[in-house]
């Protein structure tokens, strides 16, 4: 993963989460992964295209997703209904868009695909031939992992 891409994603995730949530936000230690990884329960996925190819995955447990959606909506949501899903989708969109804007200022042009959301148990994600950068964010509702796998077009 190109060094210049790392910071925009970390900063955007931190800023957006801090802004939209009442919870404390703490950044965890970044690391790289290349094997199949388990997904916690709710995964929002945004594709990237342009100078690069890849995707950003926002991964959290259902409980964390519900707490975040409740916080953002200002009302208690009990289950992963359309409103909760739409809220998580929007959060993924906001973070990715802000990161891409920052990257655009640095001279890298990407396009985004509309976010897709996956929910379920025992899910896994595998990227072929791309290693993923994991940006863990600790909230008081639980952990959100931002999993960025992009590579240069060759």
């Amino acid at each position: 993963m190109r060094v210049e891409y790392i910071n925009p994603f970390v900063e955007a995730a931190f800023n957006v989460l801090k802004e939209v949530l009442t919870s404390d936000v703490k950044r965890g230690e970044l690391y790289l992964k290349s094997t199949t990884q388990p997904v916690m329960g709710v995964a929002a996925l945004v594709g990237l295209a342009g100078n690069v190819e890849g995707r950003v995955l926002f991964d959290m447990s259902i409980e964390t997703a519900l707490a975040i959606a409740s916080d953002m909506n200002g009302e208690k949501l009990e289950q992963m209904d359309d409103l909760a899903k739409a809220t998580i989708t929007e959060l993924a969109n906001m973070i990715t868009a802000q990161a891409v804007t920052k990257l655009h200022e640095l001279g890298f042009t990407f396009d985004l695909t509309p976010p897709a959301i996956f929910t379920g148990e025992n899910m896994e994600v595998t990227d072929s031939e791309v290693e993923a950068l994991i940006v863990p964010m600790e909230l008081s509702y639980g952990k959100v992992e931002i999993n960025v796998a992009v590579r240069e077009r060759v």
Partner: peptide, 14 residues
């Protein structure tokens, strides 16, 4: 030069 945060044990694209 393209600098990447990368683990040499992971697959690479070229």
């Amino acid at each position: 030069i393209l600098f990447e945060y990368h683990n040499a044990m992971h697959p690479n694209p070229f």
